[in-house]
């Protein structure tokens, strides 16, 4: 019994070490990806925690059919999508609809994005979510179209279309303001 307990503890510590390593390697990327979806730091931190808790729970079941990176990113995308669809997320809005929420959110987040990031970054974040995420993954994270397609579970053709439309919209946004160097 004592041996079994000791083995269980040792296994647990191995698992935690493993998780620590994964968080060190992919933690920031997970946070960024969550932010691309939600444009909220607190929510992105919640997603970060939930992603790695899931990773910890399912670490033994992970059969290495894909890379850790791909697996973790997919968990992140799924959680973000669920969060966006949730009614509670919509109820955070104190004024009417999700559009209104996005409007008020944009105003406050925009300030942070402009001050802490920059004007261009802020405009990128102003894009609609379905264009914003592929644009960020492509231009900020340097991911190829094939990987973006795999993570977002959309076709490569669809990724290219969204990138193209995202670029067009970004051009309009950028042309509508003065970019400070």
């Amino acid at each position: 019994m004592e041996t079994l307990s000791r083995i269980a503890v040792e296994n647990k510590s191995h698992k935690e070490e493993h998780l620590e390593y994964l968080m060190l390697r992919f933690g920031k990327k997970v946070y960024q990806l969550a932010y691309y979806f939600l444009r909220d730091r607190q929510m992105a931190e919640d997603i970060y925690q939930e992603v790695f808790l899931r990773v910890y729970v399912n670490l033994d079941k992970f059969r290495q059919e894909s890379s850790y990176y791909s697996w973790i990113y997919k968990i992140t995308v799924n959680l973000c999508k669920d969060y966006l669809k949730s009614a509670t997320f919509r109820r955070i809005v104190t004024v009417g609809t999700v559009k209104d929420f996005n409007e008020s959110c944009r105003e406050s987040n925009k300030l942070f994005e402009q001050v802490e990031g920059g004007e261009v970054f802020s405009h990128v974040m102003d894009l609609p979510e379905k264009y914003r995420v592929p644009i960020c993954l492509y231009y900020i994270d340097d991911l190829p179209v094939s990987e973006i397609s795999d993570i977002l579970k959309i076709s490569q053709n669809n990724v290219k279309i969204r990138l193209h439309r995202g670029r067009e919209k970004l051009k309009k946004l950028l042309s509508g303001s003065t970019v400070n160097e």
Binding site: K28, Q32, G117, G118
Partner: peptide, 22 residues
């Protein structure tokens, strides 16, 4: 420019603190 600004924006993220909370 996008990359530099995003790095600046996300530089405030404390991965160590977040991993410890997990």
């Amino acid at each position: 420019k996008i990359k530099k600004e995003s790095e600046r924006f996300f530089s405030g993220f404390n991965n160590e603190k977040m991993s410890k909370s997990v």
